[in-house]
Nucleic acid binder design. Structure first.
Lengths: 326, 326
DNA sequence: CTGTTAGCGCGTTCAA
DNA sequence: TTGAACGCGCTAACAG
């Protein structure tokens, strides 16, 4: 069912049908009525491929995520959806699973003109193939830093936050603070680790142990913590770079028969709902996740509508939420 | 950068470039070489809109989900991704948030020919507008039943599973078994509730209390459980229709100073990783989530390649995993 | 207010 | 083995 058939059915030209569909130009009420009736009768749905090919815009933005099950990630996506919807845009979610082939496949939606721009929460700045695939298309990095200054990004100051957490734990009297980190190809992971190490060095504290979780999941956090529990002496505090990791770590500590926070204090990151669901409730660095998502859309739409706009680095506020786990 | 420019750059016709791109027809090696060089030099990327408009297929399938953060859902999606990828298809994820406008917007990707088919995990069979929007396009319901026999679906026998759980709890001596359910517009929710009530009636057990959570989240499960804890006498067992709800319920029970399972036994549903992360570990009905996703893709591709194929109802096996929460 | 027509970029005949 | 020409369905410019 095409616009041609509708025109034929309504006894008008395709241009008139198009005008009715888009509320553009002027159409005699009687003709508009006939067109609308023909559309209703035939259950006609416009072909978006043709429309987008013709207008060269899709009102769709691609969101590339490495793990959609992560609650922090889900929150950011909600912020993205809200702001996009407010501006007449639709979201396409693509789960890259941190896989090169998947990422490449997803980005073809961008280079293939299916979407108008992309927001990535992935660590792909290190993959030159992907950045050339994106080319000069509108792109915003979200909850992750851009390596080059060419691309806008929205996030928090991860180094500051990590430094604050470690300083505070030291102030509480903790002396063996371990870090549970994640894939260092993420720049935020490198920055948080750097913050962690900087503070320890400044205080002449030589107990410095980092474990890397294989994914941002509770299970991976638990495994990482189990490795830490084989240390002698044991850590007396753990800083995990996500709430999911922290939740898994807490489980491992509990199973080992140790008490939180008496034996080991735990601090998470993100400030997701999960931090309030675990027992004891988790001290965590709260990120303004919804706002991060919204700002990413604002930046992206700005770039879409004004291609010459300079790249922006938006840094939002974070805060340490102190709860029973410390 | 279009195929025209490449043709010009390589000194051949657009047809030849197209043949190189699609490995179709025959091209003189020398010309192929020149085309490939032109493509590489100009960083050309084919316009998928034009290609899909012309070929009338996209090799993409739409997946509509109501809450991407639900771990069960995430597992099913992984299964979908695996099977789709094995067949050369790409996934587009659309978070409907159980919202009509969002769902409508998402399904336009289908009626607008952007994708070749749709897998829904949503309860949209009740919304006639949406089903007409889908029209006769390839469609599979996943982890949810179809109301009409026209559309294929993949899932488990929810009524059987619920009946089994309740019978088993009764066998353990529990007499006041409450149900934490979810939005009854989901057919699986209606079936599980039916299973719950059927068994209670059969045993002449009149203590029958159902609470409805506002979403499939821990927070909503906690709120629902808090309402149940205002009952007199208290329930001595709770069956929640998802692990996320059960986790929230456990938190509420713990905060009320009650013991699991001594005071109140808890059973979840789905068999997600979460059920192993909570303390005590959760007894739950394990669904073959990955396989559900894979089967959904198998059914959908069958429908895409063979439009006259009859709708199938695929029922997979479940099993009750008994752990410390009961 | 309306209709005709020229592309958007591509794959695919059909002749050569 | 190649190229010219058509049409997928749509919007927009232009002429009436």
């Amino acid at each position: 069912m095409s616009i041609q058939k509708i025109a034929q059915l309504a006894g008008v030209s395709v241009a008139t049908v198009s005008r009715v569909l888009n509320n553009s130009g002027t159409v005699k009420p009687q003709n508009r009525e006939r067109v609308l009736r023909a559309i209703a009768e035939s259950n006609y749905q416009p072909n978006l491929l043709a429309r987008q090919l013709r207008t060269a815009r899709s009102l769709m933005i691609l969101v590339m995520v490495s793990n959609i099950a992560n609650p922090f990630c889900a929150e950011v996506v909600k912020g993205i959806e809200e702001e996009a919807e407010n501006n007449g845009y639709r979201i396409l979610l693509c789960n890259s699973a941190a896989d090169l082939a998947r990422s490449r496949s997803g980005l073809k939606l961008l280079s293939g003109k299916i979407v108008d721009g992309v927001i990535t929460m992935d660590a792909l700045a290190r993959l030159p193939e992907l950045t050339t695939l994106i080319g000069g298309a509108p792109w915003v990095q979200c909850a992750e830093y851009a390596d080059s200054g060419e691309v806008s990004c929205v996030g928090i100051n991860d180094m500051d936050a990590a430094q604050h957490v470690i300083s505070w734990l030291l102030g509480l009297g903790r002396r063996r603070i371990a870090l549970i980190n994640h894939d260092l190809s993420y720049r935020y992971a490198r920055l948080r680790e750097q913050g962690y190490k900087t503070v320890l060095q400044t205080h002449g504290n030589h107990w410095c142990v980092v474990e890397y979780a294989s994914a941002l999941t509770s299970a991976a956090g638990r495994v990482a913590m189990e490795r830490l529990l084989r240390q002698h002496p044991l850590p007396d505090a753990v800083f995990a770079v996500s709430d999911t990791l922290a939740a898994g770590a807490m489980r491992a500590i509990e199973l080992a028969g140790l008490a939180i926070p008496q034996d080991i204090a735990v601090v998470g990151f993100d400030g997701t709902e999960l931090s309030e669901m675990v027992s004891p409730q988790l001290t965590t660095v709260e990120q303004p996740s919804r706002e991060i998502g919204r700002q990413a859309v604002v930046q992206l739409l700005n770039k879409i509508h004004n291609p010459d706009a300079r790249a922006q680095r938006i840094m939002l506020d974070w805060r340490l939420v102190k709860r029973a786990s410390t």
